[in-house]
Design a protein around this nucleic acid. Structure first.
Lengths: 207, 207
DNA sequence: TATTCCCTGTTAAAAATTTAACAATAATGC
DNA sequence: GCATTATTGTTAAATTTTTAACAGGGAATA
């Protein structure tokens, strides 16, 4: 599977989640228009994405849900899974840990970090919380490849720095402070306020 | 200001945040390449966005930070601000409330909702928490236009329904359950797992 | 005051993404 | 079994978004 478009990758994740959902409802097959409806996109887009990942449905029966879930897994998961750390055990950090805890995902949060002694050396939903100081050590020992930053924005840059030096490969930054990392580290930034302001803008400008 | 591209709207929010940040550092002017660097985009893109919103910098001095902040405010804020509710006072809901609390934003969270009697009738960072049952009533009384859904996914659809019936104009859905609302309601869906899986994919496929 | 340099504003080109169009064909109905 | 219908797969067109190219002009230099 060569380079899929960015947007397709995002949708694959959503397809899988919707497909799993349908599976629990007892459905075994699904049409492109059904999947499209669930994601608020067009059927063509669904078919095109499916084409890009090299899968085929059967005419008039649609796509086999299980097969598709498996294939998406082959594309976006790694066999061994990836090991993840959450840095900053505030509300957002906890939300992440609880959220991932239940799912049978290949992505596993294996450590969390904080400075606050009330939080360190405790375990939240099975995830141990270490002090910031031990980040380099634990990242290496636990073979962590991805870090999720949910600290206060002021400290985000130094956290990112530490993570990079410890050899992390990807960072998901949830603080509003924009970061800067070397090219070889994949960085995704997400700001909740931006989403909210976007909604506000389109609410204001709706006809 | 007519219809700005979607992506420009998202960036405006980020420009503003970065500009505010620079302002507190004592900067009064900024070049397109500086702003670009902060957001990990190109200077051309910055200049183009600025062109689209009808602002002009001065040659060799760059853009006046205060003026630009004001202009962005005129575009993405409404004069009276918008009144927001958070539904679901788990970790994520609380994160949102605390996060917006500090900022001098025009977006104000004026109510929150939950079913859990341990949470209802309390106040978090100045935001009162009501029982789900009172949603219609409070949305109308408080003139709430936007709802942020941070409940467990199972209940998200019925919450969205209630919000729509209560006359809300925009919904920001943070649950992994995809929703469906009438066209006149602006819906933005965001799934933290999708972001994480995207990072995982690009980490796996990096060269 | 001429020259160089740097930065903006904008038009044009390129790239990415979405949508349309339609051929192919399995199932269904008659 | 023949026509009709429904649905996929794919190429081509359209749209959106980003990037390149460059003219213009103020500031700095000399």
């Amino acid at each position: 599977m060569k380079n899929l478009p960015d947007k397709t990758v995002e949708r694959l994740s959503q397809y899988r989640r919707s497909l799993n959902n349908q599976l629990t409802k007892g459905k075994t097959n699904i049409f492109s228009h059904e999947l499209a409806h669930l994601l608020h996109i067009t059927p063509v887009q669904v078919r095109r994405d499916i084409m890009l990942i090299g899968y085929s449905g059967t005419l008039r029966k649609g796509y086999d849900i299980k097969e598709m879930i498996n294939l998406i897994g082959k594309i976006i998961d790694t066999d061994e899974g990836q090991r993840i750390a959450v840095i900053g055990m505030g509300n957002l950090g906890k939300a992440f840990i609880h959220y991932l805890h239940e799912k049978g995902s290949k992505l596993r949060i294996v450590a969390s970090f904080d400075v606050n002694p009330d939080k360190t050396n405790k375990t939240y939903a099975g995830v141990h919380c270490y002090h910031f100081d031990r980040m380099a050590e634990i990242v290496k020992k636990e073979e962590i490849t991805i870090g999720i930053i949910t600290t206060p924005p002021e400290v985000a840059p130094q956290i990112a720095d530490k993570l990079v030096k410890a050899g992390i490969n990807g960072i998901l930054n949830y603080t509003p402070k924009l970061l800067s990392v070397p090219d070889e580290v994949y960085l995704e930034e997400y700001d909740m306020i931006t989403s909210l302001e976007k909604v506000a803008y389109f609410v204001k400008h709706r006809d």
